[in-house]
Design a protein around this nucleic acid. Structure first.
Length: 717
DNA sequence: TTCACAGAAGTTTTT
DNA sequence: CTTCTGTGAA
C-alpha cells in the first residue's frame, strides 16, 4: 500500500480545474486515489476541509476514508462532509426541510415503515389489500421516485406501467408521509432537489460550500443522485467521480449506467482517466473474471492487467445438493485455517439471502464462528423495532406508523376499534396524529377507551423528559416505564430469553454510541440507526467467517473467496416471466470473482431445495462455462465435458408460459437454454420466423436441430 | 380485547 | 419451511 502512485493514479490525483471521470477497474486502487486526492486538495491546493464533499457507498467507507486522510495530512477531517448520498442528504434536510413544509424533526421511514404506510393508504381508499398488494405498490412507487417521475407525471409517461390506481396510491402515500412528518429513503434524495429548486439562494450557498465534490461508485448512482451532484458542481466544475461500468449492479433500484457512460456530455471539458492496473488479484482470477464479463455487449472496452503472480487455479466444485455444498465448502474453509489462513480472510458469497440458512446450520454444527452481513438484521427484530418505535415517536409525535406499533404494546387494552378510529381520522380529515390525539373526545370513544389512550400518552410524556439528556438515559427510562422486562419474563420460554438479550444488546450499543459521540441524544442515535448500511454493522477484524450476498461484497477484498450456488436460475438469477437482466447478473458474478486476492472457489449443486417443496434439479451456471478450462481445477464431478444428467427445471418449467419473447431474436453463436438439454450454442439457423430450424450444440458435443416455435428456447446471451 | 390456531403466501439484490 | 394475516373463542 505504501507504494508510490502509478502514472494514471498520479494524474487522477493531481488533475483539478475540470471535471474528472476515473474509470477504475476492480482492485485498481481507487479508494487510495480518492483519499490522496482529498489530501492533495487540502494540503497543496489549499481548499479548506469544510469545502469538500465526498460521497461514499457506505458509512463505513466514509469513516475509513477520513481515517486514511488523517494518516496522510494533518487537518480537521471532522469538518469535511463525507458520507453516503442518503446521510448527506438527510443532514441537509435536517437543516432546511421546514422550507418545504415539513418539520426538522422528521422521521426517516425504512422499507417496512413505508410498506405499512402504503398499506394504510390502500385501506383508507377502501381498496382490498389482497388485490392491491402493498409490497407491489411500494416497489412501483419507489421505482418511480428513483426515476424522478412524480405523481402528476405518472399518467403522462408512456414507458412506465400506467395505472390510475397506482397514481392515486402514490399521491395519497406522499400526502400521508408529509402528514406523518416523515420521508422515505427515496425522498431523502428527492427533497434536496426540491429545496434547491424552491430556494435558489440555498443552492448557491451549497455550491459555494462544496467547492470540490468527489463521488465513489459512480456507476451505481441514480437520477436524483446525479441531479444532486450536478446541481452542486455545474458552475465550478470541480468534481471527480470514480466508477466502473463492469461493476454496475444496482440497475434494479434505479441506478443509471448512463450517468457514467455519458459523464463527458453532462460535464463539458471532462477528462477521463482509466486505471487498469490491478493490485489485488492473481492473473488467474483476473483472467477468469474478464472472460465472463467480456460477454456483455454493453460495456466500455477495457482490460485489467496485473504484475501479480498467476496464482492458484479457480476451483470449480460440483455437489449433489445444497447441504453437501455447504459442508464441502466449510470443509475447505477449515482446511485453510490449518494453513494459517484466518477466518476473516475468507468470505462466502451467494446470490440470495435465503441461501445462508443451510450454511449457517452447518457452521453451527461445526462450531465455526461466523457473521452474516444483511439478511435478518438486528434492527429488524420485533423487540428492537418496538423500542425504536417508541424512540421515534418521542421525537416525532406525528409519526403514526410508530404510534400504531406501540400504542398497544405491551398490551394495555387499546384495541382495533380505537386504533381504527384514530387511523380513520388521520386519513380522512386534515388532522394529523398529534392533533387527533389532542381532541380524542371527538372520536366517539367510550370514556374508558379515552382514558387508556391518555394513560399511554402520559407514559410517553414522562419518557420525553429525558429527551435532552443522552440516548442512554432515554432508553433506560423507556425500559423502566413500559416494564418491557416483565413482559418478556412472564413465561420462561427460550424465545423470550433471546428477546431480553437483544434488548440488552440494544442498550449496550446505545451506551457505546453515547460514549463515541459528542452529539449523543436520542435524536442523534435514531438518525444514525436509520441510515446504517448492512456493511456498517460488520466488524471485519473479528476472527469470524463472513457470509454475505454478492451485492454486499462490492468494494471489499478477501484472500479466499467462495461463490456458492452458481446455478442457472440462481446465479444468474431468473425471476420468471419478464426479461431478466443477464448482463447485470454477469457483472454481479464479476464483482464476486474480483473480490479474491489469492484464490476463488465456485460451487454449484445438482439439486437444490427451494423453500418448502421438494428438491429441484439444477444446472451449472453458464458463467462457469465462460471461464476457460485451463484456468480451473475441478473436483471429481465437475469436469466440463461431463454431460449433466440434470434436467433444467425451475419455476419456468412448471408455469406453461411461452419462453420465447416476441422481441428476442436468435442468432448464430447465441447461447440458448433448452429445458431438457440445458445450455447450448446456436451453430446454424435455417429459414426465418417461427418455422425456422435452429441447430444447437449442447454440452458434451450433443447436436440437435429444433423448429423454433416448438423448441421453447430461451436466449441467454 | 386478547390469545391461539390455521391457512396462505412468499425469497432477488439495498439505501 | 417460515413468516405474516385473519378468524374465532374466551
Amino acid at each position: 500500500m505504501g507504494q508510490i502512485l502509478n502514472k494514471q493514479q498520479n494524474e487522477a490525483v493531481k488533475l483539478i480545474g475540470c471535471p474528472v471521470l476515473i474509470f477504475a477497474g476492480a482492485g485498481s486502487g481507487k479508494t487510495r486515489v480518492l483519499t490522496e486526492k482529498i489530501a492533495h486538495l487540502v494540503d497543496e491546493v489549499g481548499i479548506p476541509p469544510e469545502h469538500i464533499l465526498s460521497v461514499t457507498f457506505t458509512n463505513k467507507a466514509a469513516s475509513e476514508m477520513k481515517e486514511r486522510i488523517l494518516g496522510l495530512i494533518r487537518c480537521d477531517v471532522s469538518k469535511m462532509t463525507v458520507g453516503t448520498f442518503h446521510s448527506v442528504c438527510a443532514s441537509l434536510l435536517r437543516k432546511h426541510i421546514n422550507i418545504l413544509g415539513y418539520e426538522n424533526n422528521f422521521t426517516i421511514y425504512d422499507q417496512n415503515d413505508a410498506k405499512q404506510a402504503i398499506k394504510n393508504v390502500i385501506k383508507s381508499m377502501d381498496l382490498d389489500v389482497k388485490t392491491f398488494q402493498p409490497n407491489k405498490y411500494q416497489y412501483l412507487i419507489s421505482n418511480l421516485k428513483n426515476k424522478m417521475i412524480y405523481p402528476k407525471d405518472v399518467l403522462l409517461k408512456s414507458d412506465v406501467y400506467v395505472d390510475e390506481v397506482l397514481c392515486d396510491i402514490y399521491t395519497e402515500y406522499n400526502k400521508s408521509l408529509k402528514e406523518n412528518n416523515a420521508v422515505d429513503f427515496d425522498d431523502l434524495l428527492l427533497l434536496p432537489l426540491e429545496l434547491f429548486e424552491k430556494e435558489n439562494t440555498l443552492l448557491q450557498y451549497y455550491q459555494k460550500k462544496f467547492q470540490y465534490v468527489l463521488v465513489d461508485e459512480y456507476q451505481d448512482t441514480n437520477k436524483p443522485q446525479f441531479e444532486f451532484i450536478y446541481n452542486l458542481s455545474k458552475n465550478n466544475n470541480e468534481i471527480t467521480v470514480v466508477g466502473d461500468d463492469d461493476q454496475s449492479i444496482y440497475a434494479w433500484r434505479g441506478a443509471d449506467i448512463n450517468n457514467i457512460l455519458n459523464f463527458s456530455s453532462s460535464f463539458p471539458n471532462a477528462t477521463t482517466i482509466k486505471l487498469e492496473q490491478n493490485y489485488r488479484s492473481t492473473k488467474t482470477i483476473l483472467d477468469a473474471a474478464y472472460n465472463v464479463v467480456s460477454k456483455n455487449q454493453h460495456r466500455a472496452d477495457k482490460k485489467l492487467w496485473t504484475d501479480n503472480e498467476d496464482g492458484e487455479p479457480i476451483s470449480i466444485n460440483e455437489f449433489e445438493n445444497e447441504n453437501n455444498e455447504a459442508s464441502g465448502v466449510i470443509e475447505d474453509v477449515l482446511k485453510n485455517t490449518q494453513k494459517n489462513i484466518s477466518l476473516n480472510d475468507m468470505v462466502l458469497l451467494y446470490r440470495t439471502n435465503s441461501q445462508s440458512r443451510v450454511i449457517e446450520d452447518r457452521l453451527r454444527r461445526e462450531s465455526v464462528p461466523y457473521h452474516i452481513v444483511g439478511g435478518m438484521k438486528f434492527y429488524d427484530r420485533k423487540e428492537i423495532k418496538d423500542l425504536l418505535a417508541y424512540l421515534r415517536y418521542l421525537i416525532n409525535p406525528k409519526d403514526s406508523i410508530s404510534f400504531f406499533r406501540i400504542v398497544n404494546f405491551p398490551p394495555r387494552g387499546i384495541g382495533k376499534t380505537v386504533t381504527d378510529k384514530i387511523l380513520k381520522n388521520i386519513t380522512n380529515t386534515d388532522q394529523d396524529l398529534s392533533q387527533t390525539l389532542e381532541s380524542l373526545p371527538d372520536l366517539d370513544l367510550s370514556a374508558k377507551q379515552v382514558q387508556k389512550v391518555e394513560d399511554f400518552l402520559s407514559i410517553i410524556d414522562s419518557i420525553k423528559e429525558t429527551i435532552n439528556l443522552t440516548a442512554l438515559d432515554t432508553i433506560e427510562k423507556l425500559i423502566d416505564e413500559i416494564n418491557i422486562n416483565d413482559h418478556y419474563t412472564d413465561k420462561d420460554n427460550p424465545e423470550d430469553y433471546e428477546r431480553l438479550e437483544n434488548i440488552q444488546e440494544l442498550v449496550s450499543s446505545i451506551s457505546e454510541f453515547v460514549e463515541r459521540n459528542d452529539n449523543n441524544s436520542v435524536e442523534d442515535f435514531i438518525e444514525e440507526v436509520s441510515l446504517l448500511t448492512d456493511i456498517d454493522r460488520w466488524n471485519m477484524n473479528e476472527q469470524k467467517l463472513t457470509l454475505m450476498t454478492l451485492h454486499s461484497s462490492k468494494g471489499l477484498e478477501f484472500k479466499n473467496v467462495y461463490i456458492l450456488g452458481a446455478e442457472e436460475g440462481l446465479l444468474p438469477l431468473s425471476h420468471g416471466d419478464d426479461d431478466d437482466d443477464l448482463e447485470e447478473e454477469r457483472r454481479l458474478f464479476y464483482v464476486g470473482v474480483t473480490r479474491g486476492i489469492e484464490k476463488v472457489s465456485i460451487s454449484y449443486a445438482n439439486s437444490r431445495r427451494r423453500f418448502g417443496s421438494g428438491p429441484m434439479f439444477s444446472l451449472r451456471s453458464s458463467f462457469i462455462d465462460s471461464i476457460p478450462e485451463e484456468l480451473c481445477s475441478y473436483n471429481s464431478d465437475s469436469k466440463p465435458s461431463y454431460v449433466g444428467r440434470t434436467l433444467f427445471s425451475d419455476r419456468k418449467q412448471s408455469n406453461k408460459k411461452v419462453l420465447i419473447n416476441k422481441d428476442s431474436e436468435f442468432a448464430v453463436n447465441d447461447m440458448v437454454q433448452h429445458k431438457l438439454y440445458g445450455n447450448g450454442k446456436i451453430t446454424n439457423i435455417e429459414g426465418i420466423g417461427d418455422n425456422s430450424k435452429i441447430t444447437i450444440q449442447f454440452r458434451g458435443n450433443i447436436i440437435k436441430k429444433f423448429i423454433k416455435k416448438y423448441a421453447n428456447l430461451k436466449n441467454i446471451n
